[in-house]
Every structure is written in structure tokens, then in C-alpha cells.
């Protein structure tokens, strides 16, 4: 009999203790952010898709089209086509990533011998089609240069043009 009442009382007390916790939080300020109106700042290490580092000394990218990134990529989503502009120097004519396949490992950035790649802070990545996720890094760089008021690096022409198609789909700038 005593245990019966004791259990009822301790049980009742434990319920009250739980309710005290929730009411304590009820009057506490809110911790969430109303997303489209308020935004959080991205952490400095955030890994978005990759983009070219804008080298302020030369005013352009450092990519030498060695294709190290394309080779190490686990999902094989980087397409680099290099073109030799002079016997010693090779630059990319096309650098496209198909971001929908990316697993954000960061191996491309680490493998780059000239440190030409960095992560962007782009986080709004939703698109309506597969093509919306294709990122053209050269186009991004050009936009970046325009914003910085620098000379825009033109796309080098390929030596041999054999009916080369445009990058598939619409390319995100």
C-alpha cells in the first residue's frame, strides 16, 4: 500500500519536473532563424562547389589544365579541356563541373598543384533540371573579374575546331 502511494506521488512529481523544464524553455528566446528573411553567415570553411582563385597579381586564374582534379575526383564529374597557348603554358578552354554528382570531399582542391581552386560560398543549389547544376568555372571567373573591375580573361580558342558543341545545357554563371 505504501509503495502504491509512493509510486503515484513520485510519478506525479516527476511529471511536474518535466513540465517545469518545458515551461522554462517556453519563455526563453527563440533559437531558430526565419530563413528567407534572416540568413546565417557561412562558416569560413564551408565547402560549396569549387571555383577558380582570382590571383590578384596576374588578374586571372592559375589553372594549368593538368587535369589532376579531374583524375582524383571520385565521381569523375570534372571536365577539363586544356589548350596550349604557347609551348610552355597550357590553359583551360573548358572547365565544367557537374555539381549534382559531387560528394563534397574536397580532394580536387587539395590535389591542385598550383592551388588554383577554392570552395565557393554558394549554398543555394537547388535547380529545376540537371543542367541547372552544371557549373562553368571559367564563366564564374569572368563574372568575378567583372565585379572586381579587372580585365576579363577570354576563353582561349581551341587549335582545332571540329564542330565542338557548346557545354551541355544552360550554364550557371
Amino acid at each position: 500500500m505504501v509503495t502504491y502511494f509512493k509510486e503515484i506521488l513520485t510519478g506525479f512529481y516527476s511529471l511536474l519536473a518535466g513540465m517545469a523544464v518545458t515551461i522554462k524553455y517556453f519563455v526563453k528566446p527563440i533559437v531558430t532563424v526565419q530563413y528567407p528573411r534572416q540568413k546565417l553567415s557561412m562558416s569560413p570553411a564551408y565547402r560549396g562547389h569549387t571555383e577558380f582563385v582570382l590571383d590578384l597579381e596576374t588578374g586571372t586564374h592559375r589553372c594549368i589544365a593538368c587535369e589532376m582534379c579531374a583524375r582524383i575526383c571520385p565521381s569523375q564529374l570534372i571536365t577539363v579541356e586544356g589548350v596550349k597557348i604557347d609551348p610552355k603554358k597550357k590553359v583551360p578552354r573548358k572547365y565544367v563541373i557537374e555539381y549534382q554528382y559531387c560528394s563534397l570531399c574536397g580532394l580536387c582542391v587539395e590535389s591542385c598543384p598550383t592551388k588554383a581552386l577554392k570552395f565557393s560560398e554558394e549554398y543555394r543549389l537547388a535547380g529545376f533540371s540537371r543542367e541547372d547544376c552544371v557549373v562553368d568555372l571559367l564563366a564564374r571567373l569572368q563574372a568575378q573579374q567583372q565585379r572586381a573591375g579587372l580585365a576579363v580573361t577570354p576563353r582561349p580558342e581551341a587549335r582545332r575546331e571540329e564542330g565542338e558543341a557548346k557545354p551541355e545545357g544552360e550554364v550557371k554563371g
Binding site: I23, Y25, T32
Partner: peptide, 13 residues
């Protein structure tokens, strides 16, 4: 609203 504020969020806004 009650649920939201107990859970530290604003609820429908």
C-alpha cells in the same frame, strides 16, 4: 505556437 515556443522556435510566422 505553444509547441513552437516550448521547442525554442517561433512557429508559423
Amino acid at each position: 505556437k505553444v509547441a513552437a515556443h516550448m521547442q525554442l522556435r517561433p512557429g508559423p510566422m
